[in-house]
Design a protein around this nucleic acid. Structure first.
Lengths: 149, 149
DNA sequence: CGTATCTTGACACCGGTTCTCATCCTAGCC
DNA sequence: GGCTAGGATGAGAACCGGTGTCAAGATACG
């Protein structure tokens, strides 16, 4: 099977840390790549039709977070959702549905991002805070929940 | 003891829901009012010198979240930190230090907030998402960590 | 003062996450 | 190809934050 750009990047990153890109890890990366937003361990277990046991999923998620390949996202219900880091998937933000909990990735225009960047500098300057990144999340009700509720 | 503005607001809200403003609940609100950012159940247990048992703290946090007095904030380590809702403490955002984990409240100018609001509408419109609120968090290194490290 | 109801406190329970360890697999070498 | 060392896996136990249960205590109202 053709290996995607993202998978190649992941592979390089793993190699440089002397961590093997095994079947289970590959499946996880592919599942994350195909999803529209952050996934929990349980989600992924389902996505992969239980081909990878929970313990391995958790271990892989932890390993890849440590290597900066994945980013944990703490949300409702106390469970952690992971997604591919920005250097793999691109910078984006989230729409979080209060009703169903779904997190949807959104991409803003370059213009909008530049506005946000200037807000960041304005906000951090006076506090002497060195900004490294930002997250902008909008919560509300998604279209499908609004329609059915 | 003089009851603060915020406590009076909380009391009114509780009364209208026919929930009593008891000693334990009062202590919790005071502890939250005195803290600089969101606190976890464990934090509060310590803040109050274990005067209120964990089960009561959890129950109170849940009750007050349901009533919109407190807002849960899911963060690192999987535990939930609570803070007084915006209508009590004012709308604000967070600077999160990667190094020491401190969360600092920041307030943006009215002008900046209006810019953010327009970004929100632009971002949600095409997805049919009904926005109810937003959170804008900047992560990086705080002044004291940058100075000492 | 009495009673109905709300609240509390102690503890059992639950579910997500982490730890452990024996077994399996991969990479490198002969 | 077969061998070996060390990383990776899988099953289940352990752990821990958080929730539910229920008898005992506090509160409002008459």
């Amino acid at each position: 099977m053709a290996t995607s750009q993202i998978e190649q990047q992941v592979m390089l990153r793993l190699n440089s840390a002397e961590v093997r890109y095994t079947k289970g890890r590959r499946l996880l990366v592919q599942a994350l790549q195909q999803s529209d937003g952050p996934r929990s361990a349980r989600d992924l277990h389902g996505d992969l039709e239980e081909a990878v046991p929970m313990s391995s999923i958790y271990r892989t998620l932890t390993t890849m977070s440590d290597l900066g390949i994945l980013v944990p996202h703490h949300g409702r219900g106390g469970n952690i959702r992971y997604e591919l880091a920005e250097w793999l998937m691109g910078h984006h933000h989230h729409l979080i549905c209060r009703s169903c909990g779904t997190i949807d990735d959104i991409e803003l225009t370059e213009h909008t991002e530049s506005i946000i960047d200037s807000l960041v500098s304005a906000a951090t300057e006076e506090k002497g805070f060195t900004a490294a990144g930002h997250s902008f999340e909008i919560d509300g009700v998604c279209a499908s929940c609004a329609g059915s509720g």
